[in-house]
Each structure stands twice: as structure tokens, then as C-alpha cells.
Simulated scan of single mutants.
Amino acid sequence: MAAAQESSKFCEAFPMKSGDGPKSYAKNSTFQREAVDVAKQLIVKEIAEKLDIEILLSSKSNTFHIADLGCSTGPNTFSAVEGILEAVQLKYQSQMMNSQVPEFQVFFNDHTTNDFNMLFKSLPPNRPYYAVGVPGSFYGRIFPNASIHFVHSSFSLHWLSRVPKQVVDRNSPAWNKGRIQYSNSTDEVVRAYEAQFAEDMGCFLHARAQEIVHGGLMVIITPGRPNGSSHSDYVANATLLLVGSCLMDMAKEGVLLEEKVDSFNLPMYYMSPQELEAAVEQNGFFSIERLEYLPRVPVDDTVSEQLASHLRAALEGLIKQQFGEEILDELFDRYRKKVEEQLSILEIESGKPTHFLAALKRKAN
């Protein structure tokens, strides 16, 4: 009961577009897939060098537990899990322990409103692991103590547990009137988002410290801005600003109510590696084994179409809840056109990293 209560405190959910239709997340998450693919060799290296397989040999069970937090509907989660599993098998084989290669159980975690039916239907038919769906927010406890050997989380931790309360409070200095996110807003709004991120990351690390076995690993792949850069200079924030400007244009034209825009904010925050380091240090239960930017995949002529479809797959549920379904086509058509008009922003930023990988190891203390 206690575990369920702890997890239920984090009740806001922001699922990706369900199903496998042309507008679904399953069909519109290739940007995320490219980053996962780029990170695979780094994950293989971390497992080869840092995973303590003695932790499993010393336990009564011969089952290696992998958790993917924020798995959505696939197919990216299956690709990531396959790479992790193969790397663990190689680790055993490299130490001449073929006969002791464990069985594998994979926990696919996401919010209760995630399309788990689509996830289960998409599971690879000849998978070499036992699959389990685990509903619940990863900002709370979702597994028993010391039960997980490897945690993977990709493109999930930029989603906050909730929108900071101050930014939707008309009486607060941090009221974010006329904007849907923080990067071009007042210092009060930025501080509210920074505080929400720090609180959420603290909860995330606290829960994982209890769930991961001593010597276990956790790999995080996340969009994030470079150390020392401002929020407004980060390209992902720039693209989200265009969504906000499209909504405000539609409000001025009477397509939707401006009050609806004033009360709508995105629960997203792009951390820097430095911010993650500070959270890990404050938690105290993990060592950072690797922290590096991932190479950026260059954009091509179809980037405006891709950005519109990918962003719609991620944000459609939130926007539909606030403004209704009837504005979706027009909104993302306007967004696509704005991206085309401002492609220079993306081109200028194309040399800067937009994602980074962090490998953390659970300390023995």
C-alpha cells in the first residue's frame, strides 16, 4: 500500500499519441530513435567496463532485471533493450561465463494512460526476455528495493511531473501570461521551472537509489542544453516557442480564446549536464561514470515536416485537452510553415549538441 501511495502523489500524465496510425508516436519518433542508436556503442562500453556481474552471482536468482522508464509504445524501447541485453550477454561471455548467462526480464514503464496495448502488440515475437508492463510515474517508487540491475531512460526526463503551480496563478509574480513555456519569459517563470526540475530530479534519483542493486547501472539519454548556455538559446526551446506564437496568433484571430493560452504551459524542462551533476551529488547514492554530448544528426530539407509531425505526436494529447481537437490540424500546419520560414535558426544551431548521455552507477554504500 505504501508504494502505491507514494507513486500516486505524482498524478499528472502526458502520454504520447497512441496507436500505430500515421500521426502516432510509434510512427513519429525517428529523431529519438537516431539518438538511441548513436548511444548504443557507449552503452555497450559502459556495460563492458562498469557492470558488476558479481552482484547477480551473489544473489539467489539468476534473472537479470532491466527497466526502461518512459517506454511509450515502441519501437524505440525494443531497440534500446535489445542493445542492453546483447551487451550484458557479451560481458558474461568475455569473462568465460557462458554457462552462467542469466535469464532476462524487462520492465516497460510509463504512465497508466500510456497505450500499453500497442506496446504489447508490438513486442518482438522471438524476444530473448520476459516482458512486463509497469504503470506509474517514475518520479515515485515503481519497483521493490534492490530489484533492478540496469535502468534505461531515453527522452523522458525532460517531462516534468507537473507544470509549476506558480506559472498558472494569476496572482503570482511567475504568472506566465501569453506564453506556453519558460525560455523567453521572466526570471520568476524560469526560476519556477528550475525549482520544479530540481524537485522532480531529486525524487527520481531517490526512488532509483532504492530500486537499483548496489553496483547496478542507469543510463539516461535526454535532450539538454550545453553547460553555460541560456534557455532561450537552446534549439528545442526555440522550436517550442513557435508553437506558442502559433497559438497566440490563433487567439488574436479569434480562433481560440486568449485566456486558454494564458492558462496553458508545457510541463517540459531541458536540463544541462551541470544541473544533472548537481542533482546526483545532492542525492549521494550514484557515481557518474560517463557524461557526454551525443553527436547531432544534421537536418535535411524535410525537417519542418518532421518537426511538425514529431511534435504533434508528443503534444497532441495536452493541446487537445486544453483547446479541443478541432484546432490540431490548423495549429501544426501553421507551425510547419513557421519552421520553414525560420529554418535559419535550426541551421545556425546545427553545430551545437542537443542531447547528452549520462551513465550512473549505484554506489555500494
Rank of each mutant, 00 (worst) to 15 (best):
S61M: 08
G133W: 05
K17H: 15
F116L: 07
E46Y: 09
P22K: 10
A48S: 06
K320P: 11
S59M: 00
S153Q: 08
P353C: 08
P102R: 04
N62P: 00
Q342P: 08
L69S: 02
Q41L: 13
F264G: 06
F356N: 12
D169Q: 10
A39D: 11
L42D: 13
N237H: 04
S350N: 04
S287L: 12
S272D: 05
L346M: 06
K361Y: 10
L217H: 13
D169S: 14
N237S: 05
L256S: 13
P164L: 00
A146M: 00
E49I: 08
S79P: 03
Q196F: 01
Q100T: 03
Q100R: 08
A358W: 06
P15Y: 10
R170T: 13
G254T: 15
E316R: 14
P124G: 05
N28M: 03
L56Y: 03
Y234C: 07
M16K: 03
P353M: 02
Q95Y: 06
G317W: 08
A35F: 15
G202F: 07
V36Q: 06
T222A: 12
L328A: 04
F286D: 05
A358P: 12
S185D: 00
L343I: 05
S185C: 00
R33S: 05
D20M: 14
F332Y: 09
N76E: 11
I327V: 10
S304E: 00
I55R: 13
S153Y: 03
Q342R: 15
V213C: 05
E305K: 07
F107A: 01
Y269Q: 02
